[in-house]
């Protein structure tokens, strides 16, 4: 009697502990101690591309050493039609190039400060576990270069930005980008991937004033931007910059918000996000119309293009879209789909 009681108790305890295991993350199933992930000995130098494009998916490759080379470049560029601004950039673009790796990768990050720059810079990657996110190790005067290494311990989509004092000014001038750490096995495959990053800009002149505009500290502190744009320019995702997709394709947007101040209410007019990786992390929400992306945060949204036409990408704090430039477009081409959408 006692023996069988004992065995029952043990079995019950075992069943209990097993059933109580939380498995709330579809991505992080079987998450091992990621510090222990060993790289396979190979190394690659990441081939960086300009936004809105991203490097190829990592697929199911093993963890390896990834060398990433970034250069800070201060340059004058177009903020809007006829309006110029002194941007401070990573690799010459706002946002900076999209970095792509997988959990367990050993990333060797080179940060060079162009010799013609005026200001010192550094980088803080939110994917780093370590002081300053790399900021202390990468503080570079113009004309110098520093290197540091970090292991990607957490999968997710992370912001990186300059963290040199005065930090608000460095970020406001465009020094931000995204780094994706894919989980083991990689993200599920989709047909199209694009990279969008929202930012607010503070100019002395008003929205639409032509010519070279200066940064306005007071407006930045008061959090009253003149421009709210995707990818550093009111026209970045319009005209020739329009994103493309075909009917039937699955589309994934890696969306970041460099801020410095404003939170984005990200929405694609005429589309619903089938999947949203909440806050760029591992939890997935389904069937979302508008998702919140805080400054210094990111999100991955996915949908299937079902009906041809032009889809407007906005920050749904709507005056920003129509009066400050937070507007882009996705063009879907292909056969009509009257079962889903039909106008008479």
């Amino acid at each position: 009697m006692r023996k069988s009681l004992f065995i029952t108790a043990v079995l019950a305890a075992l069943i209990q502990t097993n059933s109580c295991k939380q498995n709330d993350s579809k991505i992080a199933e079987g998450q091992t101690d990621t510090e222990k992930i060993a790289t396979d000995g190979s190394s690659e130098t990441q081939k960086l591309v300009a936004p809105p494009n991203v490097p190829n998916p990592i697929g199911d490759r093993a963890a390896r050493k990834v060398i990433v080379k970034l250069e800070t470049i201060e340059k004058t560029g177009e903020l809007a039609d006829g309006t110029q601004y002194h941007f401070w950039t990573f690799n010459g673009t706002v946002p900076g190039s999209f970095i792509r790796a997988r959990v367990g990768d050993d990333i060797e990050l080179h940060l060079k400060n162009n010799e013609n720059n005026t200001f010192p810079h550094n980088i803080d990657l939110h994917a780093v576990n370590g002081p300053g996110g790399g900021a202390e190790a990468t503080f570079v005067a113009p004309g110098t270069e520093k290197v540091f290494n970090f292991k990607a311990l957490n999968p997710g989509l992370y912001v990186y930005h300059c963290a040199t004092a005065p930090v608000g000014m460095h970020i406001a001038n465009g020094m931000y980008g995204l780094i994706l750490i894919e989980p083991e096995g990689g993200l599920p495959k989709v047909d199209r991937e694009y990279y969008i990053m929202q930012g607010d800009f503070y100019t002395k002149g008003k929205f639409g004033d032509k010519g070279l505009q200066e940064f306005d500290m007071d407006k930045a502190i008061a959090e009253h931007p003149e421009y709210v744009v995707f990818n550093g320019n009111t026209g970045a995702l319009l005209g020739d910059g329009e994103l493309q997709a075909k009917v039937g394709e699955t589309v994934r947007f890696f969306v970041g918000n460099g801020g410095p101040n404003l939170t984005s209410s990200f929405h694609v007019i005429g589309e619903i996000f089938d999947k949203v990786y909440i806050e760029g992390g591992s939890k997935i929400n389904d069937n979302v119309q508008t998702t919140v992306i805080p400054p210094g945060g990111a999100s991955i949204v996915e949908f299937k293009a079902t009906v041809p036409g032009e889809y407007v990408i906005v920050d749904h704090a709507i005056f920003r879209a129509f009066n400050k430039g937070a507007l882009g477009k996705l063009k879907v081409t292909g056969p009509e789909n009257p079962a889903v959408y039909k106008k008479n």
Partner: peptide, 18 residues
């Protein structure tokens, strides 16, 4: 802030364009 940041990024043997 900008000046102090610049000073902090220097080493005595550095030679910068500006």
């Amino acid at each position: 802030f900008v000046r102090y940041a610049l000073r902090g990024s220097l080493k005595a043997d550095y030679c910068l364009n500006n």
